[in-house]
């Protein structure tokens, strides 16, 4: 309890309470995340249980009783009669999982490479940073598609659907490590010349120990900010890939897959199949982004 109160009274929490944008974004994000995490409990239907599907329920508009069964679906149903609200909840699970995992992967990779490049310098730095430069000349989504394509080519057909999510994570992660590496390298260059690092070198600490124990904790705040903003980008990247049909398979639909499915019905009048997943994606990305912006300002000592 006392720990909670002291956290609540910290400068950080104080800044948070003073920012309505941050509070609203946080609430929206928490609602979405909780909905996704507890989807099996929250969702009124299980969209993946073929037994509960009723094709007769297809194309029910939102908040209107189905003309055959009289059932009411909040956000309507799609062509197969699946409840859109439930598919969104389950779709968000995939989107969020892929997003988090991809960012984590990109972060691990980028922070490690950035630390090495910044601290060791020389050839290590040249190779890592040139690789980063080259990768930056391609749009991230192209890189992701390329990696996805290669991975698809080398995985046996029977595992493809199973592996799709993991390949997606690696593809998005690999396309996103550059900004982590760049920021960490920059911060490392600053930190490594500080006297506390020299003091550690003086007593004969190994390079690894200095990087991990001394420099890493001091370069993490910008990393957190980028991680948040990357999360929004990763969710969008996943949606884009899935929308293009190279992402999450229809058996495990993410928000992007739902949007792809929905856009086929947009011009025949069944707008809700596209609209609600799209709005969810928008809210998700926007709230994460706004929160990231706020975090950047809150952690920036110069803006205090």
């Amino acid at each position: 309890m006392s720990r909670f109160t002291s956290a609540w009274q910290s400068d950080f929490a104080w800044k948070f309470r003073r920012s309505p944008v941050a509070i609203v974004s946080f609430l929206v994000l928490m609602t979405l995340v909780l909905g996704a995490v507890f989807a099996p409990l929250v969702a009124p239907y299980d969209p993946f249980d073929p037994g509960s599907l009723n094709l007769m329920n297809g194309f029910t508009p939102p908040m209107e009783p189905n003309m055959f069964s009289g059932e009411v679906f909040w956000l309507g149903t799609d062509d197969q009669g699946r409840d859109v609200f439930s598919t969104i909840l389950f779709g968000m699970r995939i989107s969020l999982f892929v997003g988090f995992a991809a960012v984590l992967f990109a972060m691990l990779l980028g922070v490690t490479l950035g630390l090495l490049a910044g601290y060791l310098g020389g050839w290590t730095e040249t190779i890592i940073m040139r690789a980063a430069d080259v990768q930056l000349t391609f749009p991230a989504i192209l890189v992701a598609m390329l990696i996805f394509g290669i991975a698809k080519g080398i995985t046996p057909v029977e595992y493809r659907d199973q592996m799709a999510i993991w390949v997606l994570i690696i593809a998005i992660g690999l396309s996103d490590w550059v900004q982590f590496a760049r920021v960490v390298r920059g911060a490392t260059l600053v930190e490594k010349n500080k006297e506390y690092v020299q003091a550690a070198r003086l007593i004969g600490r190994s390079k690894g120990a200095i990087m991990l124990r001394h420099i890493l904790p001091n370069v993490m705040s910008p990393v957190l900010v980028i991680a948040t903003i990357s999360l929004a980008l990763a969710i969008i990247a996943e949606a884009t890939l899935s929308f293009l049909g190279v992402g999450a398979p229809p058996t495990q639909p993410s928000l992007g897959t739902l949007i792809r499915i929905g856009q086929g019905f947009l011009f025949s009048g069944e707008w809700w199949i596209l609209f609600f997943p799209a709005v969810t994606l928008l809210m998700l990305a926007l709230s994460v982004n706004l929160l990231g912006d706020w975090l950047r300002d809150a952690l920036n000592p110069r803006l205090k």
């Binding site: 500080k194 006297e195 020299q198």
Partner: peptide
């Protein structure tokens, strides 16, 4: 060292 602010890991 010279700078007592930079010579201790914060």
């Amino acid at each position: 060292f010279q700078d007592p602010y930079a010579s201790l890991n914060p």
